[in-house]
């Protein structure tokens, strides 16, 4: 059963080819990738044992920055929007991070929630600037200099998101294994020793927080241009909760978990909403219950167990690391 080892590669290929077979799926898949980027941000913080219940604020901030740029300049290039959205969220993360990295656990989570509620309220109440709860339309940007028609743009956006997701996975994977990333997980296990190594736990967490905000920002820009409209709902606390939900579903032990979780979540949501409109949330609830009770390491953990069963005696990938 060597084949099991290639499962991730096969899945990535399947996702990449799916829109060719089922064109209308690419919108949903792009949404999943955008959310996956934000979830990856949540996963970074989970490494330090911290759960943010407000991360959608960074998602919304960059989505609105895309809307403002498009409106202000009467059009813009996707590359600029992506860059601006990421930088904007990262900068916001640096400022908010200065406050939240002083706290841990429930206080950390709630402080993030509080900040996100402030942003949500601002977006909703500043009607003449943000369009209130109706939000703002986001036109179609040029694609690296090219004017694309709608379908072509959607396809291009999907593949761009896929590449961005891959690049983000690689970067975060490397980051988590670097001394900084190991120091980040040391915040969860022994902050006292970390300080006694001469490392500032707050500074490490701040760097991770900025990274995680920037990742959410990258996803936010993608979702803004994918939907063509931004509303305050993008920053609502339910959305933040959704990111945490997906992170647990996919498994926080590996960067691919964020995207595996997001894809399953979006597909289940889409089909369940179409076929069982009244009970889809219940279905998702039961899936999460099952994951927490029987496979607390999420889809990634399930996959790793599968590999272990298929090739017994082989050292796992996560050797020397337990979670």
């Amino acid at each position: 059963m060597r084949l099991v080892r290639f499962l991730p590669a096969v899945l990535v290929l399947a996702v990449a080819l799916l829109p060719l077979a089922v064109p209308w799926l690419k919108i949903i898949l792009t949404v999943a990738l955008a959310k996956g980027l934000a979830v990856l941000g949540v996963v970074v913080l989970l490494r330090a044992g911290q759960v943010s219940f407000g991360h959608a604020m960074f998602f919304a901030a960059s989505a609105y920055s895309a809307a403002f740029l498009m409106q202000g300049f009467g059009g813009m290039d996707l590359a600029v929007l992506l860059l601006a959205g990421t930088v904007c969220s990262g900068a916001m993360g640096a400022v908010i991070g200065l406050f939240v990295v002083r706290y841990r656990y429930i206080f950390f989570g709630m402080l993030n929630l509080a900040f996100s509620m402030v942003l949500y309220a601002l977006l909703e109440k500043m009607f003449h600037v943000t369009g209130g709860s109706d939000g703002m339309a986001v036109g179609r940007p040029t694609y690296f200099g090219f004017e694309l028609a709608r379908t072509a743009f959607e396809t291009a956006l999907f593949y761009t998101s896929l590449v961005l997701a891959g690049a983000a996975c690689w970067c975060v994977h490397r980051f988590l294994r670097s001394p900084l990333g190991e120091a980040l997980s040391a915040i969860r296990t022994n902050e006292t020793r970390l300080e006694y190594l001469g490392i500032s736990a707050r500074r490490v967490l701040l760097i991770a927080y900025v990274l995680s905000a920037a990742l959410a920002g990258l996803g936010g820009t993608v979702i803004a241009v994918n939907q063509g409209v931004v509303t305050p709902d993008l920053g609502y606390w339910i959305r933040s909760g959704e990111f945490v939900f997906i992170a647990i579903l996919g498994g926080a032990g590996n960067v691919l978990g964020a995207f595996a979780g997001a894809l399953v979540y979006e597909l289940v949501r889409f089909y369940a909403a179409a076929m069982a409109a009244d009970v889809w949330q219940m279905i998702l609830g039961f899936v999460l219950l099952g994951i927490i009770l029987f496979a607390s390491r999420g889809f990634v953990g399930l996959y790793q167990d599968l590999v272990a069963v298929a090739a017994p005696g082989r050292p796992g990938r996560e050797r020397g690391r337990k979670r």
């Binding site: 970067c171 490397r174 980051f175 294994r177 670097s178 001394p179 900084l180 990333g181 190991e182 120091a183 040391a186 190594l197 001469g198 490392i199």
Partner: peptide, 16 residues
């Protein structure tokens, strides 16, 4: 990690 802290080696892409 102690050695990395001592050397202030914080390259985020180089594994510990």
């Amino acid at each position: 990690l102690a050695a990395a802290a001592r050397e202030r080696a914080w390259n985020p892409f180089r594994p510990l």
